[in-house]
Each structure stands twice: as structure tokens, then as C-alpha cells.
Nucleic acid binder design. Structure first.
Length: 471
RNA sequence: GGUGGAAUGGCCGAGAGGCGAGGCAAGGGACUGCAAAUCCCUCUACACGGGUUCAAAUCCCGUUUCCACCUCCA
């Protein structure tokens, strides 16, 4: 079995993954700034890194997965004014929306999910350390800045030169030693929330929380830091600047997921209303949306379209239908097994599209085995497919999805009712009264129940709602 | 101006020097009372112009178009 290779944004190459501590992996993923409802771009990041996490777990690692919540920043404060509610109420509202979206898509809850506002103490300690080491300064107005010109290796992740950056249009240079110095801490303005510090009351700048919380939960050095491509600069550069200036090793590897695009352009908050997760979940199930978001390689742009989402839905249902048939035929739920082709693909920088090809292959073999009555082969295919789906977070037998169904009593009652109708239909077919038998089939179909005649007799299933039917 | 990314068949979407991923759609066939489901077959592409090579979608040079980041961003 091959070993895991992962891409590293810092070196722009793929290399063997070697954890800092044998058997353990620490991951820090930049989570949401909770200032708006989640759109599918946000959750794509969650899904991509959830697949990474599940694959690491499946590979035998003990994974500590941190995904933060940034619950204080300029946008949240603006939103609070706009919504006429307290900033903390805004943050809580959208944090819940994110939590719901992650849950609907079966993204595992992080090991720890720290909030920025709960770690002001750690931030102050980090700033004190940075000032002691001469990397940061407090000019006396309540702000604290990091002095970027003094850094040995600033901007190495994005490979830019400090002097080539376009100067910020709105930079307040009054207290800065250099225009590009960034704020670790911002002095409180009237009406703003604030916390007391040795340099005056204020609130965190955007980047400080991640350095402070990564240190708190993963230590000075950890294995993987993840986030969206657009965080490379400035957010991740500034995290590196803070943490390395503090003397920490920080992230050994950087991984970034690409965007979901719409009409070739990055999804932005201004055009994304209909692409909010809760909107899309009106037309497809969470497991199907996840299947779609996870189906492209994490470093490739995913061009969103309703047609492509519907196609992914149909594709997933074929796989699900095979698994359900295998349960009917074998009388047991498949045991997850990881196949070699799938494993090799995942070890190659999480090559999910190639891994999906291995699922298609297993599906074809499994369906043929049903036709030929080779139950050993059916079981083998079903086990491998379930093993693959489990890693992708799309296992239909996962309690996260099973619980979305209805109660056992109702299911049994419905099953009994339909079987009565099917018995009538069979009787009609035997006496070649196809008009009556087809009437029964059509009647059931009108109710959303699809009948299939198989070698083992008729079976029924509920036809799923389809994408695009709502609007 | 600086730094990156992308262009693949009707569509989606991998691959990164040589046996043309995979899916969807379409057409044909098998099975079926008819369907449905399933299986088999067919259609075969790498933006453009040069170059390297026995061999280029893949490497090199140039060009075009598009996208992103440059202190709000997943």
C-alpha cells in the first residue's frame, strides 16, 4: 500500500506526509468569520478538509482537528449595526447557521472549536511576547502592530515582495513604522466591544486569534494548516509572521482548497444568496450536496451549476441503490473495506476524482454480480463501495443520514401496504391482465413510489425529490 | 505594477512524455408482456503558433482569452 503524499502550498510541491509525532496529526483549519449565512463555498472548505481528516483517521492516525470560529471582527460589528442587534447575537446566529450546515453535510465536529473571544488572554500573552522580542510595538494609541520589515521571511507563502504590494488605500500611517505593518490589536472606538490590555482597551485584529489558538490547542508546531486559497495573503502570511516572530515552528505544511465559482467567477457574498446551503438543501439531500462538493479535486475550481448538482445527485443515487439492493439480497449491511485503487488515489494528494472512478468500477462489477447471482462478488463490491463512501463522508448507512428517515413503524406500515398492492399486481400479471397491473404501477408512481421487477421479484423505492423542482 | 491559477469531447471532470480516467447526455443492442433498473457496444478531446523528442494534452519558447489575490473573503 502506498503512503500518503500531500501538496504543500509553501513549497508548491507534493511530498510524503510525515507527522511531527508518529501516529498523531494536528490540523488547524481556518473556519468561519461568522458574519453571514454559509454558502457552498464555505462548506466546500469544510467538506474538503473533512475528507482529509477522515482519510487520516482511516490511515490509522489519531487526528486532533481544530476549526476556529472568528466571532469578533469589523464585518460582524458592521452587521450588528445593520441588523440592529448586539454583535454577539449576530455572531451566535451565524455560528449556529454554520454548525447546522456542517451537520447537514456530515462534516465531523472539530475536536475543539475555539472562539476568538474566548482566547483574548492567549492573544495578550502572544502580543507581550512579540513586544519583548522586538517584533511588535504599541505606539501608544491603543493599537499594537507587527513590524513586518524586521521579519526574516515575510511573504514566503505567497511569494511576494513587500515593496511590490499595492499600498492599502485606507491605511492609517500615523502610528505605523511602515505602511505595511498590520494590526495585532485595535484600540476601542466608542461603542465597540473591548477588552482591557496593558496597552489600553481594544479588540483583536483579524489574524491574531489563529496564531494564539493554534498554539493553545496544537502547540508551537503542528502538522497541517488549512483554509481557502484566498487566505494565503494576507491572513496566513500574517499568522506565519506572528507565530514565527514569537519563536514558534508553526505549521509544517499548508493546504488550501480552491473556490466554488459561479459563471467562472469566485462566489462572492453579493451574488450568493441562492447558493446558501440551506437554500440548496431544499432541493437535494445533504449527502448529495456533499457528494457534489467533494467530487472535484480540492485544489481545482468547482464551477457550480444546478445541472451539475442534479447530475451528481443522480450519480449518487445509483450507488446508493446498489447498496440498498445488496442489503436486500445479502440480508446485512456492508462492512466498509478500503480497496487498493481507492487507497492509491487518496494517497495521491486526495485524488478524489480518480477515487470516484474506482467506485464506478466497483459499482459496475457489483451490478453485474447481482444479475449473475454471484453473491460473494456482490458483497465484495458493496463492502468496497461502502468503505469508499465512508471516507468521503457519504456513507448512506451513517447514522447522520439514516436518522433523516422516518420511523420504523411508519416504514413497516408503508412496506406492508405497498406489498399488498404488489401482490395484486403480480396476480394480474399472471393472468396476463396487463391493463390492471400497469394501473397499479402507474398509481403507485403517481404517489412517488417506483416499482422495479427483478429476478428476485418486484421491489419498490421512493423516488427522490429532484434538484430544480422548487424554483 | 507584483504574485498565482486556468483553457481537455455535446456537458461535467481527471491525467502531466508512450497502453486515450470516470460520470452525465446521445445513439445502438441485451433483458422485459411493456416498463424501470442493470449490463454491453458506439461517438474520443486536449486554446493558438513554433520548438525539443523515436514519441507531446503532458516538456521548452512565444501568443490569446479568462479567473483570482495584493490588508473584508472558504
Amino acid at each position: 500500500m502506498s503512503s500518503l503524499n500531500l501538496y504543500d502550498t509553501a513549497t508548491r510541491t507534493t511530498s510524503a506526509f510525515v507527522p511531527l509525532k508518529a501516529g498523531e496529526v494536528g490540523i488547524y483549519l481556518c473556519g468561519a468569520t461568522v458574519q453571514a449565512p454559509p454558502h457552498i463555498g464555505h462548506v466546500r472548505s469544510g467538506v474538503n478538509f473533512d475528507i482529509l481528516r477522515r482519510w487520516l483517521i482511516k490511515s490509522g492516525y489519531n487526528v486532533t482537528f481544530i476549526r476556529n470560529v472568528t466571532d469578533i471582527d469589523d464585518k460582524i460589528l458592521h452587521k450588528a449595526v445593520h441588523e440592529e442587534s448586539p454583535w454577539w447575537a449576530v455572531a451566535m446566529k451565524y455560528e449556529r447557521a454554520f454548525t447546522d450546515a456542517y451537520a447537514a453535510l456530515n462534516v465531523l465536529p472539530p475536536t475543539y472549536e475555539p472562539r476568538a473571544t474566548g482566547h483574548v488572554t492567549q492573544m495578550i500573552e502572544l502580543m507581550q511576547l512579540l513586544i519583548e522580542r522586538g517584533a511588535a510595538y504599541a505606539p501608544g494609541n491603543g493599537d499594537v502592530y507587527l513590524e513586518v520589515r524586521k521579519l526574516q521571511s515575510y511573504l514566503t507563502l505567497s511569494r511576494q515582495k513587500l515593496d511590490d504590494l499595492m499600498p492599502a488605500a485606507d491605511a492609517d500611517e500615523t502610528y505605523k513604522r511602515d505602511v505595511r505593518d498590520f494590526a495585532l490589536w485595535k484600540a476601542a472606538k466608542p461603542g465597540d466591544p473591548s477588552w482591557p490590555t496593558p496597552w489600553g482597551a481594544g479588540r483583536p485584529g483579524w489574524h491574531l486569534e489563529c496564531s494564539a489558538m493554534a498554539k493553545a490547542y496544537l502547540g508551537e508546531s503542528f502538522d497541517i494548516h488549512g483554509g481557502g486559497l484566498d487566505l494565503i495573503f494576507p491572513h496566513h502570511e500574517n499568522e506565519i509572521a506572528q507565530s514565527e516572530a514569537a519563536g514558534y515552528g508553526f505549521a509544517a505544511r499548508w493546504m488550501h482548497n480552491a473556490w466554488v465559482t459561479a459563471s467562472g467567477e469566485k462566489m462572492s457574498k453579493s451574488l450568493g444568496n441562492s447558493l446558501q446551503v440551506h437554500e440548496l438543501l431544499k432541493s437535494v439531500r445533504g449527502i448529495e450536496l456533499r457528494w457534489y462538493l467533494g467530487s472535484a479535486h480540492y485544489r481545482s475550481m468547482l464551477e457550480f451549476s444546478h445541472e451539475a448538482l442534479a447530475e451528481a445527485s443522480v450519480n449518487f443515487r445509483r450507488i446508493e441503490a446498489f447498496l440498498n439492493r445488496s442489503v436486500e439480497l445479502l440480508g446485512k449491511v456492508p462492512t466498509p473495506v478500503v480497496g487498493k485503487a481507492f487507497s492509491d488515489a487518496m494517497n495521491d494528494d486526495l485524488a478524489v476524482p480518480t477515487a470516484l472512478a474506482s467506485i464506478s468500477e466497483a459499482l459496475r462489477i457489483g451490478n453485474s454480480a447481482i444479475t449473475s447471482g454471484d453473491m460473494t462478488a456482490v458483497a465484495h463490491s458493496a463492502d468496497e463501495i461502502r468503505g469508499a463512501l465512508e471516507v468521503l463522508g457519504c456513507d448512506p448507512f451513517d447514522s447522520a443520514f439514516v436518522s433523516q428517515g422516518s420511523s420504523d413503524e411508519m416504514t413497516q406500515a408503508l412496506d406492508g401496504t405497498i406489498k399488498l398492492a404488489l401482490a395484486q399486481r403480480e396476480a394480474a400479471r399472471i393472468r396476463k391482465d396487463f391493463e390492471s397491473s400497469d394501473a397499479i404501477r402507474d398509481g403507485l408512481k403517481a404517489l412517488g413510489i417506483v416499482i422495479e421487477d427483478t429476478a428476485q421479484g418486484p421491489r419498490w423505492s421512493i423516488s427522490q425529490k429532484t434538484e430544480g423542482s422548487g424554483s
